[in-house]
């Protein structure tokens, strides 16, 4: 203890105990990557030492080898191309439809009365259960695959947009009206930008759901596609390929998250 502190101590004074801090996680750029790398190294070690049976889980090096074979055979590009095409179509259509329905539910009483119960009733239905119906409705071609992803992304998007529109500051809308802006202008210039944070977070969720549904969508008549590749690996009990396929899905998830993060930084600069 230092001299003045001693003096205070004699008077019976002591520092107030510190109770703050914590609860404020900050991004640690390299910690995440290091943690992941460490985990994979540990997994590899367990496989090499025979602690994990190859029947249970292939070593990461085997999965990477499967991935390399896939890339060298040229099939990786085919699978990725097919899947990304379906994802792009299904997700874009689902997001656009979700924005439209969410806006309608957020702005018009009648639309709200119609859409909200419908969303509540249909959102929880696993889309995979509807696959047989989708085959009848949309056939076994691309349409049923796109539709599966579309339906999966539409509902979370509707909910996110509706919530976002509901949360747009009403005084901003009054302001728009007081300056004589048209209804369309108010929606375009005030409601949509105001709901943009919610729309972007809805896009994040729906993009993840779209990737989740990829495997289900490609159960039906898909020759190429990451989901079809994973299904085939499962059928053949080729666990190294299975894990390789899952790695591709993870990479897709990471990429989408990164792209949306960039979009958020660009579009939501005003939020700081």
């Amino acid at each position: 203890m230092s001299e003045p502190a001693c003096a205070h101590a004699r008077e019976g004074a002591r520092p107030v105990p510190y109770r703050g801090g914590g609860f404020a996680p900050r991004p640690r750029r390299w910690a995440g990557a290091a943690f992941l790398a460490g985990l994979i190294a540990f997994w590899e070690m367990c496989s090499r030492l025979g602690w994990i049976s190859p029947l249970a889980l292939p070593a990461p090096s085997e999965a990477l080898a499967a991935l390399r074979d896939l890339a060298q055979s040229g099939l990786l590009a085919k699978h990725l191309g097919a899947s990304l095409g379906r994802l792009a179509q299904g997700w874009t259509l689902g997001v656009l439809a979700g924005i439209a329905a969410g806006l309608a539910a957020g702005l018009f009483s009648l639309a709200r009365a119609g859409i909200l119960p419908l969303v509540a009733a249909l959102f929880p239905i696993p889309k995979i259960a509807l696959l047989p119906l989708f085959i009848i409705w949309f056939g076994i071609g691309e349409e049923s695959k796109v539709a599966t992803i579309l339906f999966g992304t539409f509902f979370p998007m509707t909910i996110a947009v509706y919530g976002g529109v509901d949360n747009v500051d009403r005084t901003l809308i009054r302001m728009g009206q007081s300056f004589g802006l048209s209804r369309l202008s108010i929606i375009r210039k005030i409601v949509l930008p105001g709901a943009m944070p919610a729309i972007l977070s809805g896009m994040r969720i729906s993009a993840s759901i779209a990737i989740i549904l990829l495997v289900a969508a490609e159960m039906i008549g898909a020759e190429y596609g990451v989901g079809a590749y994973i299904l085939l690996a499962g059928n053949l009990m080729a666990t190294d390929q299975l894990v390789a396929g899952v790695m591709i899905l993870s990479a897709m998830g990471l990429t989408v998250s990164w792209l949306l993060g960039m979009a958020e930084r660009r579009l939501l600069r005003w939020r700081a």
Binding site: T171, R174, S178, P193, M196
Partner: peptide, 15 residues
């Protein structure tokens, strides 16, 4: 715009 408001909380578009 003959009748024009000034609001208590400014009502500026943050974006």
């Amino acid at each position: 715009n003959p009748l024009t408001y000034i609001f208590q909380d400014f009502a500026l578009l943050p974006w």
